[in-house]
Simulated assay, not measured.
Amino acid sequence: MENNRLIMYHKQSASARIMFFALNGSVCHFDGLPPKSKIVDSSISEERVVDKSENLITISQGKLGLSSNILEIEKQFLAIAKNEALTFNVYLASFTTVDPPYEQLADLGGKFITLIEARSLPSVEIELLGLAYSFLMD
């Protein structure tokens, strides 16, 4: 997944409550973003084709020990973060289950957090979650 990061979320169908999956102090899976990273671009496009989206999803499901088809990429969302040396594509994926897979991911030390609970994350990740939340609520 080199310079690709994936934000994973679950949206309750009845209440529209959005929760983001956090692991190892980050919501940008799997390696977080380096210090001093900043968002340099973000876009929403109906026509975007996400390069390597199948690969991102397959790798993510494998690393988390999840069954296939439990994650689905949001093909319209893309954010780009950058530090001094590297550029990162940040994608968004939803859990397709009725409820968040709490038990499956708790063994890894992961948890689902709301946007309010994300305030301890690095500022670039908080900003990314704000973009994702705005996208999901539109």
Rank of each mutant, 00 (worst) to 15 (best):
Arg5Ser: 00
Arg5Leu: 00
Tyr9Trp: 07
Tyr9Arg: 06
His10Arg: 04
His10Gly: 02
Lys11Thr: 09
Ser13Asn: 12
Ala14Tyr: 09
Ala16Arg: 12
Arg17Ser: 15
Ala22Asp: 10
Ala22Gln: 15
Leu23Glu: 09
Gly25Leu: 03
Val27Leu: 05
Cys28Glu: 05
His29Val: 03
Phe30Leu: 11
Pro35Thr: 02
Ser37Leu: 02
Ser37Glu: 00
Lys38Gln: 15
Ile39Gln: 02
Val40Asp: 04
Ser43Phe: 07
Ser45Phe: 01
Glu46Trp: 05
Glu46Asp: 10
Glu47Cys: 09
Glu47Thr: 14
Arg48Val: 02
Arg48Asn: 07
Val50Glu: 05
Lys52His: 12
Ser53Met: 06
Glu54Asn: 14
Leu56Gly: 06
Ser60Trp: 03
Gly62Ala: 13
Leu64Tyr: 12
Leu66Thr: 05
Ser68Leu: 13
Asn69Met: 14
Asn69Leu: 14
Leu71Pro: 01
Gln76Met: 12
Gln76Tyr: 06
Gln76Leu: 09
Gln76His: 10
Phe77Val: 00
Leu78Ala: 04
Ala81Arg: 05
Asn83Arg: 00
Glu84Phe: 15
Ala85Leu: 14
Thr87Arg: 12
Thr87Leu: 12
Phe88Asn: 04
Asn89Asp: 13
Asn89Pro: 03
Tyr91Asn: 05
Tyr91Leu: 06
Tyr91Asp: 02
Leu92Thr: 01
Ala93Met: 07
